[in-house]
Structures are given as C-alpha cells and as structure tokens.
C-alpha cells in the first residue's frame, strides 16, 4: 500500500465583490478519498478553483504532499500532479477519446510509446478501450465522464479533484463511477477529493468530508459523523438535494 498523501488547506479566503465565497477555510485531508459537500453556492467549486489555481486566495496556504502550491500557475500545478474535472465535463469534441487522455501526458518527459501505453491502460481501467478512436463529439454523457476520469488518472497524479462527477448520471452509472473512484488510490497512489450533491455516493466513497455553507466550514471529520451532525442537517434543510 502506498502511503497516503496529505492535502492541507489553511485559512483560504476568497471574496467576490461583496460575497465572501470562502471565509478562512481550513481542513487537512489525510484519507485517500475525501469529500466536500454543501448546498448550492456554498463555495465548493470555489475551493476547488483555489486549489487548482483559477481563483486566488487572499493569504492562506494549500499544501499538497509537503509543497505549498498556491504560487504556481494552473498548468504548473498540473505538472506537479494536480488533476481536476469540471462540473461540466471538458472533452474536446474534435479529439478522439484516446487523444483526450493523451493530452494530459504531452507535457511530461518520456517516450511517446510509454505515454501511449499509459493512456491505453487507463482507458482500459475505465472501460473505454473499444471507444478509444471515437471522436469526443460522439460520446454519451457517461462516456465523457469516464474519459475525464481516465485523463485525471494518467501521468502520476498526486491529487485528483472531481467537481460533481455524478451530475446527470443514472444510479447504475453513479455506482460504477464510485467503484472507479474507490480504485484510484491503489492504482495511482493519488489522493482524491470529490464534490457532489449525491450523499449516497459521498458516504460510500469518502472517508472524511468537509461541509461548507455560505463560505463557512460547518463541519469536517469522518463522513458518517459529519452527516449526522445537526448543523449539517440544518444547512441542508429546505434544499431538495439531500431528500
């Protein structure tokens, strides 16, 4: 077993005009898979954007595997082993499934043959080997998600973040996705953070979970414990997502 990495979020602060999207958030994720939940507009995506470099935190630190990453531009962070998917999956329509995965390896040193082999291997892991040469435009929503997952898994990742990966998926597809996420650590050694509204998925795959509401941390700890927290239940009251 590979030693788990550690993602330390320390005093991350983001304001958009008058809105405090993240109010001095701190949390240290140490489990192989962590979750981030919260009602709409809670700041989950913003936190992911800070970690991947699209939004700047006013002060604070994010330490991944012993390295403060906040000073690096987004593509450098990717080179350092950060991966993420977006709320809307980003698959280039005019690239094949294979090329959509290969692009993640292009900036790395190494032989083209080795890169191709790795991309092929990850497509096999997600079950898209027979779709490898199909253009992205022809994929179903689930296949696009799987391509995204394969892309995140290549190139020796350290931290993979999924923003609502189960959005728009059926129950069976969500289950299959959960299986894949559960296998990431053993396969790549990477730590994973998952944002989702699907509490079933979160409680199944995430060992520890951070709950945000209006930019504040209202709970953080083992997932079952967090989900039973009255403050968390109150935050979700009236939002249909948790029904």
């Amino acid at each position: 077993m590979i030693a788990p990495h550690k993602v330390e979020i320390d005093q991350v602060l983001v304001r958009f005009g008058g809105v405090v999207a993240l109010n001095a958030i701190s949390a240290a994720f140490t489990a192989p898979i962590g979750g981030i939940i919260g009602p709409n507009g809670a700041g989950k995506t913003t936190l992911m954007n800070v970690i991947s470099g699209f939004v700047t935190s006013k002060g604070g630190r994010v330490v991944v595997d012993g390295q403060d990453i906040l000073t690096h531009p987004p593509h450098k962070r990717a080179h350092m082993g950060l991966r993420r998917s977006f709320q809307k999956e980003q698959i280039a329509d005019d690239l094949t499934v294979f090329e959509n995965v290969l692009v993640q390896l292009d900036h790395r040193l190494g032989s083209p043959a080795a890169k191709r082999a790795e991309a092929e291997r990850m497509l096999e892991v997600v079950g898209l080997s027979d779709r490898a040469d199909i253009p992205g435009a022809l994929l179903s929503g689930f296949e696009r998600r799987l391509t995204d997952v394969a892309r995140c898994m290549v190139g020796n990742p350290k931290l993979i973040m999924f923003d609502e990966p189960a959005g728009g998926l059926s129950v069976e597809e969500t289950h299959a996705l959960g299986d894949l996420i559960l296998g990431i650590h053993a396969l790549t050694g990477a730590q994973t953070l998952v944002i989702d509204h699907d509490v079933e998925l979160i409680s199944r795959v995430c060992t520890e979970t951070l709950v945000l509401d209006f930019g504040r941390r209202i709970a953080f700890g083992p997932t079952a414990q967090v989900l039973a927290d009255p403050k968390v239940k109150a935050a979700y009251l009236g939002t249909e997502d948790i029904a």
């Binding site: 991947s52 470099g53 699209f54 531009p73 987004p74 593509h75 990717a78 080179h79 950060l82 991966r83 993420r84 977006f86 980003q90 698959i91 280039a92 329509d93 005019d94 690239l95 090329e99 959509n100 290969l102 692009v103 993640q104 292009d106 900036h107 790395r108 892309r151 190139g155």
Partner: peptide
C-alpha cells in the same frame, strides 16, 4: 501535442490548463 493542446484550449482554457497545457 500542439494540436491536442489547441483542441482543448478551444474547448475551454481552464480545462486546458488543468490538463497541464501552457495556454
């Protein structure tokens, strides 16, 4: 590689950066 990078940039610059592309 440049063609793959361009295709992803056209899809979304954020996605390209997240994939390690120097946009």
């Amino acid at each position: 590689a440049p063609g793959r990078a361009w295709a992803l940039i056209r899809k979304s610059e954020a996605a390209a950066m997240a994939a390690g592309v120097n946009v």
